[in-house]
Design a protein around this nucleic acid. Structure first.
Lengths: 192, 192
DNA sequence: CTAGTTTTGTAGTGGTCACTATATTATCCT
DNA sequence: AGGATAATATAGTGACCACTACAAAACTAG
């Protein structure tokens, strides 16, 4: 059972292309980035992109996967937390930090990438990633024996949405960190 | 000093046109709504729109003004509050309510309308409205003798951003109200 | 009435959008 | 070598984008 492939070998590095797309979508949003921008940045022609990813939404999916495996690492300390206080604190502060880490790549690609897009497929793909984040948070809260873990997970998603949006709007790192700090203090006091 | 105007009288009702634009931008976002959509909904031709508003961004400005004078009323009880606790509580709960009031018009037009838009003029106009909201909140907090009123105002904007984004993502009214309630409880405990 | 002024509808402008029909190129299999 | 297969580049597709040149229409002033 040999797995050698027939035909002309692919010269496009798929992971590298997904990373290029990730950076463009992250900086400017899914709909604002055109196929021409993408192919130019990848130094390929449109048919190569379509052969590799099917369509623009398929490329978004790979870009989001790349984003998750790359940026998700930042949140490992939070999800390794032993107490609910530590989890909430690290979740919010990590978000504030990573959302303002780069000058051009602001906010969270998952939460911002497909805002105001008409492409329903792209929207559905993004929504899947948001829901999986909600699931991860509510599960962690449950493990930490937090009451009303679903509502608190909703609250966390709301805060992440807010921090990401404000980061994208251009707030400074210091101000966003202050918000995350104050926010986690208040929330931590109020959960059981 | 008569103020009679020369030339053909305007048959387009500017306020009504701004309201139509407001609803379209609110539902679908600034960039997703085309001039063709707007002129069709207003039953006019493009030159009439450009004669009245200059360009698409000028129409956005009038739409945002209409939005502010129309939806801003919802927040009057919050800004009439006598204590910081009452203010925060009403600010968040009003946001959760008004952001989920209509099935198609979700979230806040000011906070969502120009997400991921390349049009810098439109972005700048939206940003002005966000900044004026920040100013109103920080001023109210100052009147209520809240310490660190600028940081708390940042926190409030973050929450409004989050509630609006989550509303736009389709969360139910009940869940968003629960988030707003839990959020205000925690924040109120933690401010001085 | 005519002249001046402003808004209107007609009918487009060039530019960009995501996407593709077709042919060429580069590989593996026989 | 020659056929099969798959990825590539060439060169476009029609649809939509915000916007406008132009002239007809509707009014006021004289």
């Amino acid at each position: 059972m040999t797995t050698t492939k027939l035909g002309r070998p692919r010269s496009l590095d798929i992971k590298q292309a997904a990373t290029i797309a990730m950076n463009l979508f992250w900086e400017r949003g899914y709909e604002t980035v055109g196929i021409a921008d993408l192919t130019k940045a990848m130094s390929i022609k449109p048919p190569s992109l379509y052969a590799a990813f099917g369509n623009k939404a398929g490329l978004l999916e790979k870009a989001l996967e790349q984003y998750q495996s790359q940026e998700g690492k930042n949140f490992k300390p939070a999800f390794d937390a032993k107490t609910k206080e530590e989890f909430i604190k690290k979740l919010f502060s990590t978000a504030a930090n990573s959302y303002t880490k780069h000058k051009t790549l602001k906010g969270c690609l998952v939460l911002e990438g497909t805002r105001n897009t008409a492409d329903k497929t792209a929207l559905e793909i993004s929504t899947r990633f948001v829901l999986s984040t909600h699931e991860a948070i509510s599960e962690k809260l449950s493990q930490l024996n937090v009451e009303n873990n679903l509502t608190i997970a909703d609250l966390c998603i709301t805060v992440l949405f807010g921090l990401s949006a404000y980061a994208k709007a251009g707030i400074s790192r210091e101000r966003l960190q202050a918000v995350a700090h104050k926010m986690s203090e208040g929330i931590v006091i109020n959960i059981n």
